[in-house]
Amino acid sequence: MSIVSIGELVERARDFEGRLERYYAELRDKTPNNGVRLLTYYLSRHRRHLEEVMKGFENEVLERIFNVRLKYDVNFNPEEKFHIIKKPIDEIKGNELLEAACAYDEELVDLYKSILDQPIGEEARAFVEGLKRLEEKDIVMMKKMIAMDYF
């Protein structure tokens, strides 16, 4: 599905992350794997990224940013990237979960990059840049966690 304004993008991302959070909660209840359970606590923080970036802007500015319309539509298909959501819960392993979370973050980064290529004004640019930087940091962190092979 394509997105036409930044507000809509934020809305969609928030929706999906709400879904993810419910998924993580379910996983936490049902998984036999303790590593996965430990991870769900950490991963369900993802929703806070948006809020963290939004905190840096005043409401009035945020409203303006959300109204910025994109010149070209961008695609945002998180479900495809987070495919293990469809897998039976007791088969999920820690690293799989991390890889899926990583893929979702990478999708977000690509999305933000394609938005930054468009003329969206300085305020919106600062906002999207902030989001992008946060996700990139998150990716590095999770890649390291995958490499540690602890979960």
Binding site: Y41, Y42, M141, Y150, F151
Partner: peptide
């Protein structure tokens, strides 16, 4: 010293 979820736990 370790991954964030471990540190939090």
């Amino acid at each position: 010293c370790g991954p964030p979820p471990m540190i939090e736990a």
